[in-house]
Structures are given as structure tokens and as C-alpha cells.
Design a protein around this nucleic acid. Structure first.
Lengths: 171, 171
DNA sequence: CTGATACGGAACCAATCGGTCTATAATTAC
DNA sequence: GTAATTATAGACCGATTGGTTCCGTATCAG
């Protein structure tokens, strides 16, 4: 084919994600995004088509770079295998970031207005709940309390979301 | 003095609060706000001075109309006196609203960008934490576990915030 | 009745919003 | 080398943003 893209898609996505994370979907204007990404309007619209599509791509990027490793840790994969479920869960609530969590911020914000984004965010949160369930089940014998685990995971997800949201007010 | 205000400040605040609640600070434009409030630009700026000041006034209105009664309930005042602390706490997690909680939405959103709003939101959340503490202490003997109550109240606040945020993705 | 006040309504403002378009440059296949 | 293809930069678009200013008028105290 013809002329290849001159910018690093992943690096641009990383920069856009950071801005959406800090300022939210509506708070991050096109001009700010382009500035942070170091590209021009034409390139953005050629690559992603719209601000909303870019945002959805950022949610994917966020999943890949931050959520997935976190979920693997919770499930006890890799070096986390040496830790108990409770220890892995405790580690999650050590992670402080004044920006909170992109998924949680989006849930409280734009997800209440846009159905596509709401659906995408819900998916992400469901994945986190699943990993919480895995970590909880790891410390409990047999299938004795499958329902209890699901219920506790739901509460844990709620606490996690609140935990991350709370950090945005503490600066 | 002279000519009195022709519109009901409280009713206008109620309408503005509803819009901010549903769409967030940045999602609610002046045109939408004025339309919902049934007043004109001039009146809004004469009465509140700016969009941000209006928003802060809406947070106060929200406190007065919804938070305060909720806190009184948690503290066991009025007809809630017949309920145990645990029963009062359980009732709080029954309240479903697809708009979530204005305080929590603001924490996850605009509070991360504006310091004045962040401060105001933090205050509101601290008040909720205090009421959780009161409800928890009500079920526990003496001052045996004051620190434990504070810690549990913090976790309860986190779960509450996540609980309300979550509802914005479930529509 | 009169003068002071400040209201409601609308015109108006610069700046920004998300998005499109075109001219140019770079790269490929042939 | 040439033609086809695609990305780039940036000018440009109408609409909307939050905010100001003005005017005619209603309402007050004296």
C-alpha cells in the first residue's frame, strides 16, 4: 500500500488515555487531546474516526495496559502465585492514584449519558468482579459457598469503585 | 429595595440539580439548564453569578433535600429510632437510582479538575462517613472499638460510593 | 407620585466545540 | 520513472460554549 503512519498509535493512545483519565470524556477537548498526542486533527480522524471512537479505543488500551495485569495478579498468576487470595486482594487496595480509575470515572460520568460507553464500561467492571471472585474462591474450601463468593465479590467491586473514586477528591 | 425575584429560587435549583445529577457538570450546558429551570440567562447570572457558583448552590440544595434526611435516618432520628444500626445501614443499600449520587458522580468527575468543587464534595462525603459511623457504633457496646468503627465506616463509605456509581451503568 | 432598584428577556460576544476538507508529501506496486 | 494510494498539516466549518451588556419595565421606599 501507500504511505505508512508516521506516529506511534500506541503512544498516541497512551497520551489520550492519560488525558481522558485525568479530565474525563467531556473535560478533554480535541485541542488538548491533539496536543498531548502530538498529532494533527486529520491524523486523528483518519485513524479513529471520532472522539467517541478514540475514547472507546482508550478504554481498550487502558484494559490492556493496566486492568489485565491487575486481573492476572488477582487470579494468582505469575509471581502472585505465592500469595493467598486475601493478600492479593489487600494489595489492590494499596494502589493510590489521584486520577482514580478510568473505568470508574467513566461509569460515574459519561456512561450515564452514552449507551455504547455504558455497555463497554459495564463489561470492564464485570471482568474486575470476576477476578475478585477468583481471589475470594481461592481462600475458600470446595464449592461450599459459591453464592456467598459471588455476593462478596459484588461488594468488593463496589468498595473498589468507591475506593478509586474517593481518591479524586483527595489531592 | 426594589423589584423582587419573579421565579422560585428553590424550584429553579431543584431543576438545575436534576440536570447536573443526570448529565454531570460539563454535560449540562447553560442552554439546557436555563430551559430546565424556566428562567433566562440574565436571571441566572444575577442570582448566582456563574455556572460554577450555581453548581455549588446545587450541591447545597442536594444536601438539604436528600443527604440530610438520609443522614438523620442513619443516625436513628425520627421514625428510624425503632430500627437497629444494621437495619438502617441495610436500608441505604436498597436505594436504587439510575442517576447514581450527585456527590459521588461529582467526585469521580469535575472534582478531579476543580479544587473548590473537590473540597465541597469531600465535605459532603465526610458527613456521610460520619453518619455511617454513628449507625455502626449504635450496634456496638461501649467505646471498646472506636478505631474499628472508624475503619468500618470508611469501608462502608467506599462501598456506598461504588454502589451508587455502579447504578449509572445499569439502565 | 417619584426616584431608586433590579428584574426578565434578548441581543450579542469571543472562544471553543467536534468535525470536514484540501493541498501536499511520502510510500508502494508496477 | 510513473501511477495509485494513503497519511500529513492545517485551514476552515457551523454550532455551541459560558458569559456580558443592554433595555424596557415592574416593584419597592419615601
Amino acid at each position: 500500500m501507500a504511505r505508512p503512519r508516521a506516529f506511534d498509535t500506541d503512544a498516541a493512545l497512551e497520551a489520550a488515555t492519560a488525558l481522558f483519565w485525568e479530565r474525563g470524556y467531556e473535560g478533554a477537548g480535541l485541542a488538548d487531546l491533539l496536543d498531548a498526542m502530538g498529532i494533527q486533527r486529520g491524523s486523528l480522524y483518519k485513524a479513529w474516526g471520532s472522539k467517541k471512537a478514540l475514547f472507546l479505543a482508550c478504554l481498550d488500551h487502558y484494559d490492556r495496559r493496566l486492568v489485565d495485569p491487575g486481573l492476572a495478579f488477582l487470579r494468582g498468576e505469575g509471581e502472585a502465585a505465592a500469595l493467598s487470595g486475601a493478600e492479593r486482594l489487600a494489595a489492590v487496595f494499596e494502589n493510590h492514584d489521584p486520577r482514580g480509575c478510568l473505568l470508574c470515572n467513566s461509569a460515574a460520568g459519561i456512561a450515564g449519558v452514552d449507551d455504547d460507553i455504558a455497555h463497554r464500561v459495564k463489561e470492564g467492571l464485570d471482568r474486575i468482579r470476576g477476578a475478585f471472585e477468583a481471589a475470594l474462591a481461592d481462600d475458600r474450601p470446595g464449592a461450599e459457598s459459591a453464592a456467598g463468593v459471588a455476593e462478596d465479590a459484588e461488594r468488593l467491586l463496589q468498595r473498589y469503585m468507591g475506593f478509586r473514586v474517593q481518591q479524586r477528591t483527595e489531592r
